[in-house]
């Protein structure tokens, strides 16, 4: 693989394997237990990344709260109803991924592949639904610069969609690798990581929906 590596390469293969057969036994603070260490590091990396994303959205949220409180020009925008459908799709995709992981635990590859593909498809569908929501808003004359309410709607949903694009890429990657039998019950770090990231995006979306409908 060498230079053809990518970020997913890191997540799958993780940090260097122990140079000696048998690995580096037990650690002081953590130490190196071969594959266990890179699995742990991958999870740490994931959660650290989620912390960064959380800060990004926290910053947007606090900007929104401040901007809304300061001005008298805030006019709550009408939310396109398709958002509710999108929410349902995203929740369903998360559910499908979870069912897939359960199948993986019971070592049922075929069922895993099925559910995972379903989840991935729903994820793509959500992105299409979002594109539809934006175009509906555009058609209704609600643009990013129309009002602070719509500005924040576009900024937050777009930032979420960028995250989601990354998530879908990971899901697709897992899907392809799983069909090719490159990933499976014995090698599931990347599966777990993509699924956790996806659940995070799911929760983030629910949070954004509450934010829009209550304060937006």
């Amino acid at each position: 693989m060498g230079m053809s590596g990518s970020i997913t390469h890191d997540i799958i293969q993780g940090p260097p394997r122990p140079p000696v057969e048998g690995g580096w036994e037990g650690g002081g603070g953590g130490g190196f237990e071969g594959r266990g260490a890179f699995r742990r590091a991958s999870f740490t990396g994931l959660f650290v990344m989620l912390a960064a994303s959380t800060m990004l959205f926290a910053a947007f949220t606090s900007a929104m709260v401040v901007r809304r409180g300061l001005s008298d020009d805030w006019a709550s925008m009408a939310k396109p109803p398709i958002l509710l459908l999108n929410t349902a799709i995203l929740l369903a995709s998360s559910l499908a991924l979870d069912l897939a992981r359960r199948a993986l635990k019971s070592r049922n590859r075929a069922r895993f592949n099925g559910w995972w593909t379903a989840g991935t498809t729903l994820g793509l569908l959500f992105l299409c639904g979002q594109a539809l929501a934006w175009s509906q808003l555009n058609a209704a004359g609600v643009f990013i610069s129309s009002n602070p309410s719509s500005s924040f709607f576009y900024v937050l949903t777009f930032a979420h969609a960028i995250h989601l694009l990354g998530g879908v890429t990971a899901l697709l990657y897992v899907d392809v690798q799983a069909w090719r039998l490159r990933l499976g019950p014995a090698k599931r770090t990347v599966i777990d990581i993509s699924a956790i990231f996806w659940h995070f995006l799911d929760g983030l979306w629910l949070y954004l929906m509450v934010l829009f409908y209550v304060w937006g």
Binding site: G27, G28, G29, G30, G31, F32, R40, A41, S42, T44
Partner: peptide
């Protein structure tokens, strides 16, 4: 910087060698 920070934190938390407790860093 975000990419760098992820790497630094994961490395420090998980890749310390045997005996390298936090308070021995």
């Amino acid at each position: 910087s975000l990419m760098g920070a992820i790497n630094f934190i994961a490395t420090t938390v998980d890749l310390r060698c045997k005996g390298m407790r936090l308070m021995r860093m």
